[in-house]
């Protein structure tokens, strides 16, 4: 995207395209299985199954349903077990590798940068990142509070992640029917304009706002992402910072991070062993653009884990 003519270990930006391809594949298989074979991957990202295995339910949805219905059932909690374990082991990996809204907003950001590059050289405007990422923890608390008082799983009901998929179901169904294909009708033809209005309003707002405040939703608002970030605080999979190597401060990691993490200043230059950030989705974009070859995806405590860096660049702890 930014740098050209540099040496890469992989012939193309492998992780950058891999995480986008996986998210796109997840989204497409959801659509296809809804209308071809619901045994494959039924439902939406909020709750799904895979080839008869599951259910796999969003941990935030389980939390919200528990407080809204004032019951905790084992089957409900078991549904979130695998996603919770994945988050504990792999951090916010859902956000980077599966979330269809994350993919949509990443494409939106690519578009924004392409357009703005023609206007100004400034790709990440400083003020744009002003909303702190901890805001989403407050959103999480408020959403759980409203779910409790209102007796409805609030974020789950309005989830833009879910709305991307419900909207896509509706578009797919209409397109298939107008092409004369025989597909089951799930959306109910009478309801299309209302769905379009609600989904369009919520998703449109996010997309438009992100042109002014890039990636603000995933980074600072999404309560589901906040919960994944809390769970993955000590995850095994991380982007490692190799000791030694060339720290040329090209800052490509920082300018390209889809989550707006200042990888260079907050992690590399202070000598962190890994990019231990609750917002890191392990998408691997920074490892692709690192010109010094410092950043690599790897597991904590694996035999090839490097020792913590002790270099002249290390700042004294604040």
């Amino acid at each position: 995207m930014v740098a050209t003519g540099r040496r890469r270990l992989l012939p193309f930006k492998f992780w950058t395209w891999a995480h986008r391809a996986v998210a796109a594949g997840f989204f497409l298989v959801l659509l296809v299985s809804a209308y071809r074979n619901t045994a494959w991957l039924p439902g939406t990202p909020t709750a799904t199954r895979l080839l008869g295995w599951g259910p796999f339910v969003d941990p935030l949805a389980v939390l919200e349903v528990s407080v809204a219905s004032r019951t905790v059932s084992t089957s409900l909690v078991l549904g979130a077990a695998i996603p919770i374990l994945l988050a504990i082991g792999l951090g916010r990996v859902f956000c980077g590798w599966l979330c269809p809204l994350g993919l949509l907003l990443e494409i939106n950001e690519m578009l924004r940068r392409t357009v703005l590059r023609r206007v100004s050289r400034d790709r990440t405007t400083g003020a744009a990142w002003a909303i702190p990422s901890s805001t989403k923890l407050w959103v999480l608390l408020i959403v759980l509070g409203i779910s409790t008082i209102g007796a409805i799983p609030l974020f789950t009901a309005l989830s833009p992640i879910n709305l991307v998929v419900l909207g896509a179901f509706s578009v797919t169904e209409n397109a298939a029917q107008s092409l004369g294909m025989r597909v089951p009708s799930h959306m109910g033809a009478f309801a299309q304009p209302a769905l379009a209005a609600i989904a369009g309003a919520i998703l449109g707002t996010i997309v438009v706002v992100e042109w002014a405040v890039p990636r603000v939703f995933c980074r600072a608002i999404c309560p589901a992402g906040a919960l994944f970030g809390l769970l993955g605080r000590f995850s095994l999979l991380r982007v490692r910072v190799a000791p030694g190597g060339r720290r040329i401060s090209c800052r490509h990691c920082t300018t390209n991070c889809p989550m707006g993490i200042d990888v260079m200043t907050d992690h590399v230059l202070v000598g962190h062993q890994a990019v231990d950030d609750p917002d890191c989705t392990r998408c691997g974009v920074c490892t692709d653009v690192c010109r010094g070859g410092l950043l690599k995806l790897g597991f904590r405590n694996s035999p090839d884990e490097p020792e913590p860096l002790q270099s002249a660049l290390q700042k004294p702890p604040a």
Binding site: A34, T38, P42, G43, T44, T46, A47, T48, R49, P55, V57, D58, A61, V65, A68, S69, A151, I152, P153, T156, A157, S159, N162, L166, F169, P184, S185, H186
Partner: peptide, 17 residues
């Protein structure tokens, strides 16, 4: 309304749509 997570799985599973 308190328990449904709006995942559409029941809708997709309905054999008679």
């Amino acid at each position: 309304l308190a328990r449904c997570v709006r995942c559409s799985q029941c809708i997709q599973a309905c054999p008679t749509t």
